[in-house]
Nucleic acid binder design. Structure first.
Lengths: 75, 75
DNA sequence: TTGTAGACTACTGTCGACA
DNA sequence: ATGTCGACAGTAGTCTACA
């Protein structure tokens, strides 16, 4: 599995757990809704700044997002 | 301080601690030497894949790189 | 050994629209 | 509420070269 695919799964999992829509998350972190969609499906590789923005919108630690991604990749 | 600036400081700190040159690190993680230089000085925002590549080259966990970046930002 | 510059390619991220 | 498309601007990342 590619890194961006794992990250997308983590992103979607956390978002759904919090019952937030893509549109709400986009608004919370100042990103475009269609871009959230692309990331969740592993079609984009976010920069470090985007990772921090997503974490803030999800009320999570950026490091935790990355660690969960590592775990999915059994790294 | 900007996120990419904090990340650059973390990157340089770990690299210097391990006594690796930019050129060696570049070779270890399959990136360009001049790009390592740019990142260390906060002039670039690496993607998640690049963060994983750097972590591998440094024998570190990607999540730890991000957590150290958070700490520098007192987040 | 590192910083910088310029020129370049590929991709990140935005936006409007429609299923 | 989400996926997708096309067009677009800006930037990530490479490479050669020189101080």
């Amino acid at each position: 599995m590619e890194i961006e695919e794992a990250f997308g799964k983590v992103l979607r999992k956390i978002r759904v757990e919090k019952s937030i829509s893509q549109e709400e998350l986009a608004h919370l972190c100042g990103l475009d809704r269609t871009y959230i969609s692309l990331m969740e499906r592993g079609k984009r590789k976010p920069t470090i700044n985007t990772i921090f923005a997503l974490a803030k919108g999800l009320n999570e630690s950026p490091g935790d997002l990355v660690i969960e991604t590592e775990n999915l990749l059994h790294l």
